[in-house]
Design a binder for these strands. Structure first.
Length: 1112
RNA sequence: GCCCAGGUGGUGGAAUCGGUAGACACGCAGGACUUAAAAUCCUGUGGCUUCACGGCUGUGCGGGUUCAAGUCCCGCCCUGGGUACCA
């Protein structure tokens, strides 16, 4: 029993910890709290490989250290259990993802336990557990019911916004209405407007659509133009779906970074992702005003632009509304439409449900400025009469005549309606020719539609308003809203064609063609606001539709992209900032004097920027503005294995579930695929509908199935309830992980996401450990949700994690053997240059020191290797090695279970720490793991000295030298944990044990503190030795040894004596010796004389306790 | 292109404030114990040079600051990570 038997010790203690719930944390304690969290894993089918535990080991060391330091430590673990692989597997095999996930989690748990982590398993969570995602859904509902108030700079209740609308209406650049107008809007319109404010909202957005996965992807789920998972192509597609308004938090997310103890590189990534840029907007007048008549003859009427009479800002809201009305006309509207459509009355063209300014008119004839309204029942209500009147007045002001018919008139006496119409039309035709026919052309239209019609100015965003006099062309994105208006004359067709082509190009193609410069002239010009010069408008695909205004003022001399574009198309390059030679290359530096720029001449760039903004603002053609690159986060996924979005649609209006009806549990479906019509998998669910007024929602919460995480079908209609369709997309992978740290604090709470007491006690995470690959995904959403939960009063802090440490990736080493092409012959690596060979990846377990175990290889893949021929070099068959990601595909996965079996968990833990700095990426190699095991054996032997190597720990007074060794180690171990420098503290332990071994020290007063120091790293062996030393209580709660500097005090120092910086010999002096005396003695030393070579010493520098340098 | 991190023996890596470069470990070489093996222990180990004492040289490259530079400054090269027409 004197041998170090890691297997037995580790098994025993793991059982002991589990049985005693040693690591269970209490939510009330007089001790100070410490919250140390790991990013929880997605439980994949492959299980853990040796790379995964790296961060977990580090955080476990800190957790155990803090417990010894007297903290109440929260150190939980759980599973990010929703995700693609389980769903992919379900599609292939039909096995429910919940079952696959359950199996994988089981495997993970076993692997975790073998490594001896001190997790509090009583708080385990899984994002796919309905009891968990109930609260994910709850947060979604809060987001839906909130808007971001820029005045107070926080999220507020949407109901407060509604009452403001009711009292004061709303005024902004994009949207304006009076309180009366708001009251007049119908429910759908109100809903549409509110969606523009809600933090969770539906909108038509350009998304990254991955046809192979049948789902949309967030920007951070795409790498190099293909999906991060699977590597499938991704295309841009316009879709109507859920997003979260993270952009509202852009500034707070940016500012918050300054308060965080995170690595600079992660913070920098987030700053870049948020992409704040300060500059100014400038409006350029389009030189030839938009002319609705232009092109009228050349184009068919429907694709011409002259019917665009909507208020541009309201158009996005109204267009869906109009479409809906068109598809669901009233009986009466349909009747009238049948009579007037296709120029049936006097060859007059009518449009139905056409938008004019902020109104949707039933029927409109633009040529005659005539509007026909069919007033249904709703129009007779008093409120609507008032608003109808206001509406008529407004439309009259715009030059339209409004004719109203009631439903009754249409139903009872359609002939009279028709004859009235015919009279009005013929009267209008004779007395009031259309503006176009009158030849008033553009002027008439542009003055009439000044507010409502097509814009006649182009707005740009620039960070360099100082270069305004260097503008030589305007560049607009191919998807620019005014594209159709701007492409004119002989250039129109080519320009539109170009835009169409550029728009449809996928991200990937665009990327591949970064170097290709393409563009087209629109035929239009703007006027320069200060010089009045005409400036051409070009379409360029380097301008992005989604950023800024989708248009830029191009200053080729001082912007690289503009420069190459101008060179390519021969556009002028006007130098306005001194400092470079723009005939040779672009000068982008924000430095130098402004020239050729009228009132800006002579100013420095920075002053000029301010002056230019001032001038622009005075001229009322723009203003200082800040833009962010951060886009709103697309939240809907066309997948099965995710949280259902708790929304139903009442007559097309999205509404959230009643909180009492949460969780909305995933329903059972027959196949985990989209439907034949391309609808998401959840559309397969039977009776996927909601009855808000039903008290009990049998539909999806049968308790027995809830336990399994499954929903159940119910037929509500049979129960005589009105039911509404439920949203069929699910939440993205990052939803559940954006708030999980809170749930650990109070994992079983059924009434709240987390109790106030728990969150007040634990506060935010003191130490968060995980990979840096989450820099712009998880870690941003995580912060966003925390800030939101702070705003609505759920949590008292607004950053989730104070300190973040990123562990590096442990890479795998793949072994490659070389097959001679078109043969069944393999050659040792040294011979491969004699042949044409190709690489074959083989299991790394078959290779030791590059030598391949041929017999093992034959057994591994008999079909491939049994009858193969092998050519050796010097009697050996060698493979070559390659470093890369650890993956099944390269047969280079190392399982921690195997390492634990062979060397033990303590050795694995120490070794992973010893490999190098936690943050660095490093390849896994077992070279060196023996050294760590040897170290533990040496430690064991310190306790088991003497002839029969039995346990011996005498309580005799330690010597000064022994105390010095111990306290040196206490100091180093403590500092190193605080600095996350685990690799150096492992070597400090090694040094300590080596030195104690030299002294044959086995004294209790030295060895006991030492194993406390080591216990966070190698808990099993230390517990065992602690027990043997006679302690009843676990070492987990032993006191951390106190460092006493007295034991390290030296009174002498062996000074290195250097000459011109070169150390030649050493001399021993007392540390309190006068420096001048040391100088004298050094100069008098005979060795010194040798190195002075007869020359005098120019100068002598003596640094106390460090060095002596003699300058010759 | 831009941003960030880094470049030190045969290998992983140390050197926290500018003060003896290479701690600790692996590997390698030699030795002890053993019939032998395993385990363990001891010695050596940056390069060049010397029988040796020693000397020269050395932290990606080129300069600089300093009594003193792996460490600070300037310019460049290379590797890894992030990002990509963000105006």
């Amino acid at each position: 029993m004197s041998q170090y038997d890691h297997k037995k010790i580790e098994e025993d203690w793991q059982k002991e910890w589990a049985n005693n719930q040693t690591f269970k944390a209490e939510n009330t304690s007089k001790k100070p709290k410490y919250y140390v969290l790991d990013m929880f894993p997605y439980p994949s089918g492959a299980g853990l490989h040796v790379g995964h535990p790296l961060g977990y080991i580090a955080s476990d060391i800190v957790a155990r250290y803090k417990r010894n330091k007297g903290f109440n430590v929260l150190h939980p673990m759980g599973y990010d259990a929703f995700g693609l692989p389980a769903e992919q597997y379900a599609i292939q095999t039909g096995q429910h993802p919940a079952i696959t996930t359950e199996e994988n989690i089981k495997r993970y748990k076993e692997q975790f336990d073998r490594i001896g982590f001190s997790f509090d398993w009583s708080r385990e969570i899984r994002t796919s557990d309905p009891n968990y995602y109930k609260w994910t859904q709850w947060i979604f509902i809060q987001l839906f019911n909130s808007w971001y108030n820029p005045q107070t700079d926080k999220a507020e209740s949407i109901s407060e916004l509604v009452s403001t609308f009711e009292k004061q209406g709303y005024q902004s650049e994009e949207l304006q209405f009076t309180s009366a107008e708001w009251m007049g809007f119908d429910e759908k319109r109100k809903s549409d407007i509110l969606l523009q404010f809600r933090l969770a909202f539906l909108s038509e957005t350009m998304v990254n659509w991955c046809p192979a996965l049948g789902s949309v992807l967030a920007n951070d789920e795409i790498k190099d133009g293909v999906s991060e998972r699977g590597g499938y192509p991704v295309e841009r597609k316009l879709m109507y779906q859920w997003s979260l308004r993270i952009s509202a938090y852009a500034e707070r997310l940016l500012q918050g970074l300054n308060t965080l103890d995170w690595t600079e590189s992660i913070k920098e990534s987030q700053r870049n992702w948020i992409g704040k840029s300060e500059g100014c907007s400038i409006v350029f007048e389009v030189a030839s005003p938009l002319t609705p008549l232009q092109g009228r003859g050349e184009l068919d009427a429907d694709s011409s632009f002259n019917y665009q009479t909507a208020n541009k800002k309201l158009y996005p809201v109204l267009v869906d509304f109009a479409k809906l009305h068109r598809s669901e006309p009233t009986k009466e509207e349909e009747k009238v439409w049948e009579l007037i459509r296709n120029r049936k009355i006097q060859d007059t063209k009518f449009r139905r449900q056409h938008i004019i300014d902020q109104f949707i008119a039933d029927f409109v004839c633009l040529e005659l400025n005539l509007i026909i309204e069919i007033d249904g029942l709703i129009h007779s209500l008093e409120d609507n009469l008032i608003s109808d009147e206001a509406r008529t007045i407004k439309l009259n002001e715009l030059g339209f005549e409004v004719v109203r018919f009631t439903n009754d008139e249409v139903n009872n006496d359609i002939e009279t309606v028709i004859s009235n119409l015919e009279n009005i039309i013929s009267e209008k035709k004779s007395s009031s020719p259309s503006p176009w026919e009158k030849g008033l052309g553009d002027e008439a239209i542009s003055s009439r539609f000044d507010v409502v019609g097509a814009k006649n100015s182009l707005e740009v965003f620039t960070t360099r308003p100082d270069t305004i006099f260097g503008v030589s062309y305007m560049a607009i994105a191919p998807e620019h809203e005014m594209l159709n208006d701007l492409c004119v004359g002989e250039f129109r067709d080519a320009a539109l064609q170009y835009a169409e082509k550029a728009k449809n190009r996928s991200e990937r193609e665009r990327q591949a063609e970064v170097k290709n410069i393409t563009g087209a002239f629109t035929g239009s010009y703007v006027n320069h606001p200060f010089t009045g010069k005409k400036i051409p408008i070009w379409i360029a695909d380097y301008v992005l539709g989604g950023y800024g205004t989708g248009a830029v003022m191009a200053v080729p001399a001082h912007d690289a992209r503009d420069y190459s574009f101008a060179k390519h198309f021969g556009l002028p390059i006007l130098e306005v900032v001194q400092g470079g030679d723009v005939s040779i290359e672009v000068y982008e530096a924000k430095q130098g004097k402004i020239i050729n720029s009228d009132f800006l001449n002579g100013l420095e760039v920075k002053e000029a920027i301010k002056a230019a903004i001032k001038a622009v603002e005075e001229k009322k053609i723009g203003k200082g503005k800040t833009n962010y690159r951060l886009r709103d986060a697309v939240f809907g996924r066309q997948r099965y294995w995710g949280e259902p979005i708790p929304v139903y649609y009442e007559n097309g209006i999205p509404k959230t579930f009643d909180e009492k009806d949460l969780p909305l549990v995933l329903p059972e479906i027959d196949k985990y695929l989209p439907t034949e019509t391309g609808e998401p998998p959840l559309s397969r669910a039977k009776n996927w509908s909601y009855s808000p007024n039903l008290n009990k929602i049998q539909g999806f919460s049968s308790p027995s199935l809830l336990e399994k995480g499954l929903g159940v079908e119910a037929n509500r209609e049979q129960m005589g309830e009105v039911s509404y369709p439920i949203e069929t997309t699910t939440m993205p992978g990052w939803a559940g992980s954006s708030w999980y740290f809170l749930r650990y604090m109070d994992a079983q709470n059924e009434n709240r996401l987390v109790s106030k007491e728990a969150v007040d006690y634990w506060q935010n995470i003191d130490l968060y450990v995980g990979g840096s690959e989450h820099a712009t995904g998880h870690l941003l959403y995580f912060r966003f949700w925390t800030k939101f939960l702070h705003d609505i009063g759920v949590v008292p802090f607004d950053e989730p994690a104070k300190k973040l440490v990123n562990q590096g990736m442990i890479q795998g080493i793949s072994s490659i053997i070389h097959r001679v092409n078109n043969t069944n012959k393999f050659v040792s690596v040294g011979l491969k240059n004699n042949f044409e060979t190709s690489s074959v990846y083989i299991d790394i377990n078959l290779v030791k020191n590059n030598e391949v175990d041929i017999e093992g290889l034959k057994k591994w893949r008999p079909s491939e290797f049994e009858n193969a021929e092998f050519e050796f070099e010097n009697g050996l068959f060698l493979a070559s090695a390659e470093i890369g990601k650890m993956s099944k595909r390269w047969h280079n996965v190392v399982n921690p279970d195997d390492v634990c079996n062979e060397y033990g968990a303590d050795t694995l833990r120490l070794y992973e720490m010893f490999l190098g700095p936690l943050q660095d990426a490093k390849p896994w190699s077992t070279q060196g793991i023996e050294g760590v095991l040897r170290f533990l054996r040496k430690l064991w032997r310190l306790f088991h000295q003497g002839e029969n190597e039995s346990f011996l720990l005498p309580d005799t007074e330690p010597t000064k030298a022994e105390l010095k060794i111990l306290h040196k180690t206490i100091k180093k171990a403590t500092e190193d944990i605080e600095n996350f420098s685990f690799n150096t503290s492992v070597s400090a332990f090694m040094v300590c044990v080596n030195e104690l071994q030299d002294l044959k020290c086995n004294k209790k007063q030295i060895l006991e503190p030492l194993i406390v120091l080591l216990s966070p790293y190698a808990p099993h062996i230390c517990e065992e030795l602690w027990l043997k030393a006679g302690h009843n209580e676990s070492i987990v709660y032993a006191n951390w040894p106190q460092f006493n500097p007295e034991f390290l005090v030296e009174n002498e120092f062996n000074y290195p004596i250097s000459f011109n910086g070169k150390v030649r010999f050493n001399l021993l002096f007392a540390l309190d010796k006068d420096l001048k005396e040391i100088e004298n003695e050094v100069l008098a030393n005979e060795q010194t004389l040798k190195y002075l070579e007869g020359k005098p010493a120019k100068k002598v520098i003596v640094v106390k306790g460090k060095i002596v340098n003699v300058v010759v």
